[in-house]
Amino acid sequence: MAAGGDHGSPDSYRSPLASRYASPEMCFVFSDRYKFRTWRQLWLWLAEAEQTLGLPITDEQIQEMKSNLENIDFKMAAEEEKRLRHDVMAHVHTFGHCCPKAAGIIHLGATSCYVGDNTDLIILRNALDLLLPKLARVISRLADFAKERASLPTLGFTHFQPAQLTTVGKRCCLWIQDLCMDLQNLKRVRDDLRFRGVKGTTGTQASFLQLFEGDDHKVEQLDKMVTEKAGFKRAFIITGQTYTRKVDIEVLSVLASLGASVHKICTDIRLLANLKEMEEPFEKQQIGSSAMPYKRNPMRSERCCSLARHLMTLVMDPLQTASVQWFERTLDDSANRRICLAEAFLTADTILNTLQNISEGLVVYPKVIERRIRQELPFMATENIIMAMVKAGGSRQDCHEKIRVLSQQAASVVKQEGGDNDLIERIQVDAYFSPIHSQLDHLLDPSSFTGRASQQVQRFLEEEVYPLLKPYESVMKVKAELCL
């Protein structure tokens, strides 16, 4: 049975990233139509530049190519590739079939990587351009969430054990800070992308030097003109047959890092959902379990974690691919890159769409948070109580021993009897502590235990987050809708 299948058929496997999760716009960027249309555009740009620099290419040939950029006979191309065992030459023939007058000058002087690699770089750039505003929107939604809850005390956790208090907004800023680093890295790697350009079979530009009869300047002009037509500021000066596969490492490393950030955020949300302090959106008709109707599973956060793990592992592909590119190139890269580049971007696209949807509907339960604080705060307040007693004339050592005994009794009630923490009640009825009984409410005010959390939130948002989001103001209103 021949390899390949009808990918629109229910009898043929289709990647869930495309069929179930990723956005239509990201799927289109990695589609065959987008790819092969870009090949034709690159052939047109090459012909236009070659004509401008004096090669015998007519206006009629150029116009014929322009008129057929979208006229792609995919069936013919597939048949040609089956016959020739070469995808680029299959599309040269297919393009030439609908451009008979231009057929002889299509791909003039070029090698397969002229269309293959340059198209990949265009796709990487455009895919990054799709991700950047999506990530900015996630940051914006979380920034709104953090600002609104900047002063809401909550129990902090280290080692997932109760620690000092923080605020809900401050905790959210930990998430935002990681995503801001990801946004900066995505922008950097996007701006650092260079075009492969017009380089020939081993990167020496020998074929173009021959076409222009040894004119170095025209060869350099050709490279520059096509690079500018493709919208790049610069091209690699040095290439082998391909652009260095280190570029793929750079791009997928940034995406993998984004995956790590999203995994951490969504894990926190899942843990908070278990504590009943916070939940992701839950639709009115949504079913959490087929057997347990009360369940409210954090399905979206779980999906993000599941896909983020996949995204983090994909960076190993370009690392290994770059390491086995012998001399000017081997074909070890080809099949692998067809999979890992598309999957990385479709996965990143999915987790950003999902995280935006989550961040637009996060639900906080202040009463649950308050109750958990009441359970733990008495123990945390013991040092403040000791200091207040010393100020009232008591002995630190005597007070410490009193607190120690009462704390152990209260802990026994919590752990052995399943009761509430009654340390404060014990202190309130103990005559030894009568000098500070009137101060206990103040000493137990949760806001006095959150330090500068709310001020940190305000400063972080104003100095770091809002300036970073400013270039994306025009796209901030787009909502994230999930079908599944």
Rank of each mutant, 00 (worst) to 15 (best):
A235M: 15
L468V: 12
A206W: 01
L468K: 07
G200E: 01
V390P: 05
K402Q: 08
Y34C: 11
A411E: 07
V88M: 07
Q41H: 15
H93T: 15
T330M: 02
R296V: 13
Q184D: 14
K199W: 00
M299F: 06
A344W: 01
V168M: 08
F460E: 05
E80C: 13
S9N: 15
G240W: 00
K246C: 03
A77D: 10
V324C: 13
V168D: 01
Q221G: 08
R125S: 10
I139K: 03
L128T: 13
S207H: 00
P446A: 07
A342S: 14
K218Y: 12
Q408T: 13
F195S: 06
Q51W: 04
S412T: 14
A308H: 03
G231S: 10
C173V: 06
L255A: 09
I339R: 03
R329Q: 01
L186F: 13
L443S: 04
L355G: 04
I265G: 05
I105F: 11
L275H: 10
D182F: 01
H263P: 03
F327Q: 11
A322N: 07
Q455R: 14
A3C: 15
V189T: 12
A388Y: 06
D215V: 09
S140D: 11
V324L: 11
D182N: 01
I427T: 06
A273P: 03
L272Y: 08
Q51T: 06
A335W: 02
T58W: 10
R14W: 12
R37K: 14
V88A: 10
L461N: 01
I105E: 06
G200L: 01
V92S: 08
A77W: 07
K246L: 03
M181H: 11
A256K: 00
V457H: 02
I269L: 07
D349Q: 08
W45G: 12
S438G: 09
E283R: 07
Q285E: 09
D332M: 03
V478Y: 14
R234Q: 11
A410T: 05
T158V: 01
Q416P: 03
A235E: 13
F433G: 04
W175M: 04
R374M: 08
F212S: 06
R149G: 09
P467G: 09
L341V: 14
Q455L: 12
H310L: 09
H7A: 11
C173I: 03
V247I: 12
T94A: 15
D32R: 13
V226C: 09
M299L: 04
K82T: 13
E279N: 00
P281W: 05
G200A: 13
I106A: 07
C340M: 10
E50S: 10
T347M: 09
E228M: 12
E462P: 06
T154S: 12
D73L: 06
